[in-house]
């Protein structure tokens, strides 16, 4: 067993884990944070997306022991029911889900993605590698392609992300 210390949603937690434990299973089964979902468990669906040191990753495809000392943000740390994060509020306002299972991953991925755009990162959909990226529908679809929604709520997911990104830009 390995002692693993993580700063999760601002709180320092230490757990003893088998080296095989993925970060996803550590969060859900050992730390009681079940907001992060397990879909495919192979990095294909994006339901397990979290932020590690501010970057979006698939929690299912990494070992918890490799993240000893890291800072993790899950959907529980983004906002509360009384004080939603703007991305969460936008998903509600635009009805960006049906069953809701992929939603935490969609929201965490969207928050990470908006940060990437703010840093000027281009995407496969960007006409130029060097210009300031604009979050068009095509850009959002490309940048969110690692998050699947079996209910196919994509039009409303795109609308929610687009609205939240505009609000973030306006307030910054």
């Amino acid at each position: 067993m390995h002692d693993v210390t993580l700063t999760i949603n601002g709180e320092r937690r230490t757990v003893a884990l088998d080296a095989r434990t993925t970060l996803l299973d550590a969060l859900r089964d050992h730390l009681g944070l079940t907001g992060t979902k397990k879909g495919c468990d192979h990095g294909q669906c994006g339901a397990c997306t979290i932020l590690v040191d501010g970057r979006r990753i698939n929690a299912c495809l990494t070992l918890a022991v490799m993240h000893d000392g890291d800072t993790v943000t899950t959907v529980e740390g983004l906002g509360t029911p009384d004080d939603l994060h703007p991305m969460q509020a936008a998903f509600v306002a635009h009805d960006g889900f049906q069953c809701g299972y992929c939603t935490p991953g969609q929201i965490m991925s969207a928050v990470g993605m908006v940060g990437e755009v703010a840093k000027g990162w281009p995407s496969h959909a960007s006409a130029s590698l060097n210009g300031k990226p604009e979050l068009t529908e095509a850009e959002i679809a490309e940048r969110m392609s690692g998050n699947l929604c079996r209910c196919s709520a994509y039009p409303n997911i795109v609308a929610a992300i687009s609205a939240a990104a505009k609000d973030t830009e306006a307030s910054s």
Binding site: L61, S123, H124, R143, G146
Partner: peptide
């Protein structure tokens, strides 16, 4: 700016989450 082929190939692969890892 100088090796755009490499940027383009990387951006054509995987997903945002995977490219971060």
């Amino acid at each position: 700016r100088h090796w755009p082929l490499l940027s383009r190939a990387l951006l054509a692969g995987a997903s945002g989450q995977l490219r971060n890892k």
